[in-house]
Amino acid sequence: MEPAKFDQLLATLQTLAVALSTPRQMVPVDRQLWDSTSCATYFNVSASHFMQRMAPLPDFPRPINIASGSSRTARWKAGEIMAWADARQERSRQSKRATTSAISGA
């Protein structure tokens, strides 16, 4: 390798090492804003399923509309999405327990 190319590569690697060693501020997940794709990923469904079936549910958290250029983009508070999913799962568990006890008690 030519000495000039080696020096250039070394300088690039040093810059990269500094950039990687500098800690980045991480936004806690419960404070993040998720787009429809992130929400869909969290629920392991497609983005279209999320937008057509889940987001319109009456008890689903309301989106925050953020202006981006000439359009508006819906974002959801990740903490609200996770709390909604937890509450829905808990209601489902309670419903199953009630059904099981009603069947076994009858």
Score class of each variant (00 low, 15 high):
M1N: 05
K5H: 09
K5Q: 12
L10M: 13
L10S: 09
A11T: 15
T12K: 13
L13G: 07
Q14P: 05
T15Y: 08
L16T: 12
L20Y: 11
L20H: 12
T22L: 10
R24H: 10
R24G: 05
Q25H: 04
M26T: 13
V29T: 11
R31I: 03
Q32W: 01
Q32I: 01
Q32R: 04
W34T: 01
D35T: 02
D35L: 04
C39G: 08
A40G: 02
A40F: 01
A40T: 00
T41V: 04
S46Q: 02
A47L: 02
A47I: 01
Q52Y: 04
A55W: 02
P56S: 03
P58H: 15
D59I: 08
D59L: 11
P61G: 06
R62V: 15
I64W: 07
I64C: 11
I64V: 14
I66L: 15
S70N: 12
S70V: 07
S71P: 03
T73F: 07
W76V: 04
K77L: 12
A78T: 04
A78Q: 04
A78H: 00
I81M: 03
I81E: 00
I81C: 06
E90N: 08
R91C: 11
S95Q: 14
R97Q: 10
A98W: 10
T100W: 06
T100N: 10
S101F: 15
I103P: 01
G105I: 03
